[in-house]
Design a protein around this nucleic acid. Structure first.
Lengths: 219, 219
DNA sequence: GCATCTATTTCGTAT
DNA sequence: ATACGAAGTAGATGC
């Protein structure tokens, strides 16, 4: 990894055109060839960058970074170089995560009654012609219930659920209802769900996690 | 801006939980308080980060970074510190861009016949109860045409367009057709557009840019 | 402040 | 390889 702090101008031409006037910035060249141009503000996203694989042609006071898709990043050094150093970082062991939609689905599969009292899980990722239904359940009356799980319930999730319900009806899973289960269901999605005659429910993730992934409890 | 290269472990607890085992990494602390943890690969996204505003408690071999939402990033230094330096970067003059969806809409507003021969623009961002229609046009037969512009046409864009068309019909803009205009329309979106009786077209952005933004040419 | 939409999205995964 | 959906999405914009 090469780390440079210097005054420079930056120009990108590729999927769009973008240019940065002269200022002092942090430049990072990673081992895979990718280049990041960071200012002293603005969160984790660089002002400009080039993703690997790409080639850096170091012309001293101009860097030309190009990739196979014809994108080009040009960095021109216009003043003093405050810092320029290379360091070996070694292999990255990798990141462990917990808390995303897959986990939510796993927990709701174990506790489908947290979506709606009386629900019993029949199948996970039930295949239809327009994609898999997250949870296919039956309620106390024997009615099929398609559950679409999102971390955040938005209009797109409602439309997706509507397509599943339509397809399940054609497949003969009748009668069938649809329920959108999400940590948060935004107002537009609630409204559209009502228009489409679909249900929605907000899931308390902390409570659900407390129930654990094992031993589905029926009641 | 503080730039550190050191062996460390990283733990994040907030919207999810994530942890990184010991390895040598680049740490960047920006003037706005945000912290970035970068490996020597993996593009522009950090392995872990904390967005500003946040507070960094520097306990020497442990950093505790917290924000108002209760998120916490813990960096524990486990070995030698290869590099640790602070540098003043000054103000960032800002980035100039060209080529995003707004520009595409501007160009198509000037040249609606690039969407479909014979189209004439009536109104841009025409308001409906479910959101603004990018371009509201009329064709040679006097039929209303709602144009939804995307850089990349996907299923969500088709559904959005379908809602607009439905709403325009209720508003009395009849007869009305819908067309999805995008640089690329993915296969699923094409299929759904046909099912919904909507049109779609792929726009050659380079050609369109060549026509320029001024003087709308009618024919 | 909330909701919506874009992004040089990036990133993962299934086809 | 391509297509598709999720993201600790972040960031901008409209209401």
């Amino acid at each position: 990894m090469r780390i440079v702090v210097a005054a420079c101008t930056v120009d990108y031409a590729g999927r769009l055109s973008a240019s940065l006037p002269e200022a002092r910035r942090l430049l990072v060249v990673k081992a895979d060839g990718s280049v990041l141009v960071h200012a002293d503000s603005g969160g984790y996203k660089p002002l400009n960058w080039m993703s690997g694989p790409c080639a850096l042609l170091d012309g001293g006071d101009v860097w030309e970074i190009t990739n196979a898709k014809g994108e080009r990043l040009t960095i021109t050094f216009t003043g003093e170089v405050v810092f320029d150093s290379s360091v070996e970082l070694g292999a990255e062991p990798g990141l462990a995560k917990d808390g995303v939609e897959a986990h939510l689905q796993e927990l709701l599969a174990a506790h489908p009654y947290e979506v709606e009292a009386g629900l019993v899980l029949i199948r996970r990722e039930h295949a239809t012609a327009v994609g898999p239904v997250d949870l296919l359940c039956r309620d106390a009356d024997g009615c099929w219930v398609a559950v679409e799980i999102k971390r955040r319930g938005e209009i797109a999730g409602v439309e997706q659920l509507a397509r599943y319900v339509e397809m399940l009806e054609r497949d003969g899973h009748t009668p069938v209802r649809g329920v959108l289960a999400a940590q948060r269901v935004v107002p537009q999605a609630r409204t559209l769900a009502e228009v489409r005659a679909l249900g929605w429910t907000e899931i308390d993730y902390d409570r659900l996690r407390g129930l654990g992934a094992g031993t589905p409890t029926l009641f």
